[in-house]
Amino acid sequence: MARFNDKVAIITGSSNGIGQATAVLFASEGAKVTITGRNAERLEVTKKLLQDAHIPDSHINIVVGDITQESVQEALIKTTLEKFGKIDILVNNAGAGIPDPQGKTGVNQSISTYHKTFELNVQSVLEMTQKARPHLAKSQGEIVNISSIGAGPAAQVANPYYSIAKAALDQYTRTAAIDLAPENIRVNSVSPGAVATGFSTVSRGLDEQKSKAMYEYLGSQKECIPRGFCAGPEDIAKVIAFLADRNASNYIIGQTIVADGGTSLILGAHAHGARMVEAIFK
């Protein structure tokens, strides 16, 4: 029996990348899925991937829209209940580092960029959690938030608002886990490192070829990713599925699983190699 048989999952930000891979994985293992994103064409790509995996249309619900808008949040809950009758899993995946309109970095980024970054990466998660809560309580369900190793402890100078937003999300995950535990709702999160998705293409203005080259370079540099390669969206989707599977992770609440190939374990000094440094100063 597939582990998500008879389960219903809402996966935000599922028009590409990690959210898309999660939707395909969940549905392939029996779940009925609501997919959502701002780009209707990219959502159709996700739908096509689901159909190619032999998922029937009766197991697919699509909501096009901006997750920061209350009307879209309400549509996600309403249409999921109308089509599937319940909600078992909420994956709060939608998120992004929003570029400053004037190209500013660090502490010089505009306050409007700060507000937009928090609205997407934190506030939308709070709102979706509140709206899904009564339905997850009925099903004794799961929430998985998608954070980032950018949350720290290493500084992220170029885009600090994204980093502090994800740090706030980590604390919210811990708080929500304890608050919702009496209702038998489990809350956990995943913190990916570098993942080869369309994220760099959109946020950094790279075309597909340059984006691919960037990820390949990162993966080849052991001081960047000790594992030796850059993760694909499917690698992170498998971690999300583990946390959404009560049979596999029942005793885990309020935790953040880091899936970064060892990136967060490396110090700057490691790039030089301890033996080389010792040889210089002997």
Rank of each mutant, 00 (worst) to 15 (best):
71 S>I: 05
65 G>D: 05
52 D>S: 10
169 L>P: 02
78 K>E: 11
216 E>C: 02
207 D>N: 12
167 A>W: 01
224 C>L: 10
117 T>I: 04
183 E>H: 12
42 R>N: 12
98 I>Y: 04
274 A>I: 11
269 A>R: 10
236 I>K: 04
261 G>P: 05
9 A>H: 01
132 A>E: 02
17 G>V: 08
149 I>E: 09
72 V>I: 10
206 L>Q: 08
3 R>L: 08
170 D>E: 08
190 V>P: 04
155 A>D: 04
118 F>Y: 09
81 L>D: 12
29 E>G: 00
253 I>L: 07
39 N>T: 13
249 S>N: 12
34 T>E: 06
80 T>M: 10
144 V>N: 00
32 K>E: 15
232 G>D: 10
200 S>M: 12
174 R>W: 07
123 Q>I: 13
241 A>C: 04
37 G>K: 06
47 K>M: 10
201 T>I: 08
203 S>G: 07
87 I>H: 05
28 S>Y: 11
246 R>Q: 11
135 H>E: 14
73 Q>G: 12
102 Q>N: 05
163 S>D: 08
280 I>R: 07
217 Y>K: 15
12 T>Y: 00
209 Q>F: 04
71 S>W: 02
150 G>D: 06
270 H>W: 03
106 G>S: 15
221 Q>Y: 06
202 V>N: 03
209 Q>A: 15
12 T>N: 03
150 G>C: 12
78 K>G: 15
139 S>A: 12
38 R>D: 08
127 E>I: 09
152 G>E: 00
15 S>T: 14
99 P>V: 08
74 E>Q: 11
216 E>G: 02
139 S>G: 05
120 L>G: 00
